[in-house]
Design a protein around this nucleic acid. Sequence first.
DNA 1: CGCTGATTCAAACAACCGTTTCAAACGACT
DNA 2: AGTCGTTTGAAACGGTTGTTTGAATCAGCG
Lengths: 217, 217
Amino acid sequence: MTEHNETATRILDAAETLFAEQGFTETSLRSITARAKVNLAAVNYHFGSKEELVQAVFERFLTPFCRRLDKALDELMARSEQSTTPNLEGVFGVLARNMLSGVESARNDNKLSIFMRLLGLAYTQSQGHLRHYLREHYDATYRRFILLIHQSTPHVSPNELFWRIHFAVGAAVFTMGNVETLRAMALNDTHQDNTLENILDKLVPFVANALSEDRDH
Amino acid sequence: MTEHNETATRILDAAETLFAEQGFTETSLRSITARAKVNLAAVNYHFGSKEELVQAVFERFLTPFCRRLDKALDELMARSEQSTTPNLEGVFGVLARNMLSGVESARNDNKLSIFMRLLGLAYTQSQGHLRHYLREHYDATYRRFILLIHQSTPHVSPNELFWRIHFAVGAAVFTMGNVETLRAMALNDTHQDNTLENILDKLVPFVANALSEDRDH
DNA sequence: CGCTGATTCAAACAACCGTTTCAAACGACT
DNA sequence: AGTCGTTTGAAACGGTTGTTTGAATCAGCG
């Protein structure tokens, strides 16, 4: 699974980029192997099938991400042991810091964009096998995160919170996954270029405020 | 273009459903014509090509939608002539009522879901020709709507507002377009089934509040 | 060196794709 | 009836897809 193979890595790099740009089905194995400069048959040799390649792409960034997130959540809970309810900003801060932690240099902004775009595709492009795979491997961390958010906003009913969280997920996935397109539109409309940090600075309060808001519903 | 043809209508119905379920490239003309119970060549005969079929699917619901929306916005502006700034809830109410107007019966909830899912696909699946087509035909109404929202929230800067609007679009497209999936998850998590109206009742205040919020940014 | 197992390579495979062709069927008209 | 333009039908086209094959190449080791 997690061998440090030269060819396999090059395939994963190429696939990750092309999948994010074009989607899964519209990206052919031939275009992947051409970009990776490896032989066509290398994909089936190293990964078995195209479906397993898709899963491997997700695994490469989702597994370390969830491992780091789990550990960070452990620390957060240990620190706030006495106060039984963790606070929302803390939980979200942990998530945000984890998402940005893979992005050190300023110019691979697009790493985060690719990340979000792939997550969006996982929802949008049915790809039944992918949804099954993700549920099987990462559902535990997901549920734990949801539970913590719930505990940190006890005044919001579980059902109401569920939907607010997914409104927020939608806002994040949609905008971050289509950053280039939207940035171009914003440049036309408001004559102002936006760095990814700028956009995140608008997104985070949007989400935080909307999640905890105590509304009459 | 807008002929009331039996065969063409059946193709559009089938294509609309299958596109929303599977995406454009993963839906073959053969599966469309099989579902529509027409001959394979009928698509190329009536629409020219698959690309033009995709555009026709969008045109069938986007053209009447924008026509109704434009007229409703006319009335709104005429009614509030003296007060130079229209109010946000009014503008959004017009949009929401227009979106639901095509959905009379309770059980074609999924009409709206299909609508939103297709809109999401238009962003997600690059399909350069589609983006070009949509811009060329519906950009005027889009810009008019954005302008009205801007006038109704003068305390928010144009650039900030642009991004908030697209956060909202993301939240709407993502959740409404994946209603079935999310509804199943909600049923597991909160043991509560949700009608589409219930979800809209949560989404609308979420969006409205987040758009007009006067934040320090 | 000579052998063994892992990896690469060019080539081919069957299946499917969107599109085209052309004959058959149809409906409307004089 | 017979002719016309329109629509349907079955079949085939060239091209692309994911996958498989079998020989060539490589690395490691006795």
